[in-house]
Amino acid sequence: MPNIQEILGSAAAIAKGMSVTLREMVSPAVTEGYPDEPPRLQERFRGTHILERDENGLEKCVACFLCAAACPSNCIYIEAAENTETTRISGADRYAKVYNIDYSRCIFCGYCVEACPTDAIVHGHGFETASYNTSSLIYRKEQLLRPVKT
């Protein structure tokens, strides 16, 4: 036959446990509503890249290929071209005529961002890149560029 002390001890344990449960019940939830609501990402989250523009709206990328050289998975492909007097794409002598990132290879390590001498490439917060078609995972410059502010 259980003695009174055991009964009280069990009741106290239940009360302690329930107190945690009840406290968590009324405190705000840590889980996120994604996909019903947008995810809350850390500022330094490394998502799909963005090619930045300078204050004049010109592309910051000067096609130096350092991101491609730094990339451990070899997913960046660039073709350079020269700015002319009539068409100016970037602030420097040359610009990236083609800039592709193959997201079927990218490992989001951030080396490209670190290598960039003009801060042209940064990590955005995009991550919903899944696709049934791998060829659509090669993002072109037009998809990567920061939209021009209007």
Partner: peptide, 9 residues
């Protein structure tokens, strides 16, 4: 060659 590519590419 100018502004076309880089030596290591």
């Amino acid at each position: 060659y100018r502004y076309r590519t880089r030596p290591w590419e």
